[in-house]
Amino acid sequence: MDDLSLQHIRKSKQHTLLILLISLATFLFAIYSMGTGSSSNLGFWTTVKIILGLDEGTELQSAIIWKLRFPRVLMAIVGGAALATAGALMQGALGNPLVSPLTMGVASGAALGAALAIVVGWSFVDNDLAIVLNAFLFSLLVVFIIIQLGKMRSISAESYILVGIAITFISGAIVSTLQYFATDAQLSALAHWSFGSLSRPTLENAVYVSMSLVILMPTALKWSWDLNALSMGGDEFAISTGVDPVSTRKNILILSALMTSIVIAFTGLIGFVGLAAPHMSRLFVGTDFRKLIPCSAVLGSMLMLFADTVGRTLFAPIVIPVGIMLSVIGGPFFLYLLLKKQGAKL
């Protein structure tokens, strides 16, 4: 094999190793996170023993790990992975680095659904799942609009973004109107939902999201080559390499909107991880989507897990929602990485 090919393979292996290292770090941090919290800190090895069944611990310790923290940690991992992957897919499909899972209006649709359930009491079910179901169905409504737009052959990447902004404004106006007529209790519930939190999802919810991710992730990876062509050189370049930009863009947006809907229906609005994780991943592995998608996923998990762990331990027993912590911790770190990387240019 010639030296250029060998160099290419070596670079690819380095990126794979880096992704595996971030995955390992996320896994170890997940164990640490399961042993850490406002009620009791068990230490890393004690947590490992309890998880492996080598040490039963007290009944209370075991219950805290498995019933309280495990669902939360699992949701942080799969939710972070899904939102980060959705962000990477959307940025690639629309050729725009400013796009995040919230840009397409999916989150605004979910917020409208949640507001209707909380303020008006309008929902298909009359139990605890009312808000989750409403948020999911209204975000699916946005996915449906994306599908309809995708049927227009002339729809461009910019048009998708503009429609997303329009949906965000329309949903925002309706939510504001509902807030205007809401009671204090309803306002509080709505505000709490919009913060984005990992305290709401149950183990069952986290398993649903995990299963969805297992099904959707391979599809996302399958489109890596198409995304490379689309984001590298635009529509004409994509066509010349055998990629149909219109149908590819539509399918990728539907997939990423679905990923976003499934997570935020349970957690509320969490946006930053979908913007920051793909950008941070680009700094580590470059823009090749075959590496960028898995790297974004594991980095998204790591970010979400870290932000949630800090959020529930920093001012314990007060728990700061992960949506807020992500922006507080992730924002400056994201800026630091960007400035460090582009320092020469700025």
Binding site: L4, H8, K11, Q91, G92, G95, N96, P97, W225, N228, A229, S231, M232, G233, G234, T241, G242, V243, R282, G286, T287, D288
Partner: peptide, 17 residues
């Protein structure tokens, strides 16, 4: 028009897509 740039080797590799 590039939105996200990749290495030259990978650009040429896209020809094998």
């Amino acid at each position: 028009r590039t939105s996200f740039s990749i290495d030259v080797f990978d650009v040429v590799l896209l020809g094998r897509r």
